[in-house]
Amino acid sequence: MSTTYDRQQPAFYALIAALVVMSVGPVLLMFVNSFKLDVDIISGTSGMIFLPTIQNYETALCDVLWYKPDHVDHCSLKFGNAFINSLIIALVSTILTLVIGCMAAYALVRFRFMGRDSVSLTTLMVRMVPPAVLLVPVFGLWNNEFCIDKTSYVGSAIRDTFGGRGDVCLAGTHSGIILVYIAMNLPFVIWILQSFIVQVPRSLEEAARVDGAGPFQVFFKVVLPLIKPGLAAAAIFTFRIAWNEYLLASALSDRNTKTVPILIVNNMSEFNVEWGVIMATGMLLAIPPIIFTLFASRQIITGMTAGAVKG
């Protein structure tokens, strides 16, 4: 297919160049700075002339490196651990949200059943709830109510296996954070996927049913393969939120389940900011979303327009 492009004035291209610099510039700046020593960042001989170094990354990743960098005498930044926590939490919550969300979206689109309208209305309404609003109740519930008594059979078994003191609570565990993220993302995922499932022709499903497929088979073998673009979009958005979220994770995690955003905020609020190391950690946190953007931008844009426009 050959498309012809309109010729534009030079001023137009200048504008586009300026826009690109504006949107990518700060990211690029952080990237460059993460390879500079603090001395170079502060001394201000700005520009590109400096000796690139991976020292900042070594400091950040000191707890997972197989060798001990010379310039790190005490490995205080547990970045590697936090990175693994972030990965576990983001991946598990993305997968679960997708599975649960597309089943629910399918039911909402394809079946008429009692309570359907109230379910879809609730889904829409809770989309507006900000994470900050969930902070207080989730903190209270996860620490006090959603617990297994340590004297009970299950509770004592968990305490014997994993150690620790007190009742077994959701707070401070990966599953506690994952549960909130799933609940937070479900409304959005259901909303996006609905608009994709509507487009699946009914006749296909009926043909499968005539051939003797049960409802679950129809769903997994016929519907799911057809809504792959929607699933990709929903997956990226869910991952993005679970990967980037700070507030709820900071309320629910303990020393061992910290995620990367918490680590960055904790290091920022200290008085003397080590810019180089902080930028390196920021860059590491930003890499997965950047990769997604570069490789799946079409799905992201489809998801964004489907989520906002159709409906």
Binding site: N244, G282, A286, I290
Partner: peptide, 9 residues
């Protein structure tokens, strides 16, 4: 869309 995808932190 790059700025939107990067963590707010």
């Amino acid at each position: 869309i790059l700025p939107m995808m990067i963590a707010p932190v």
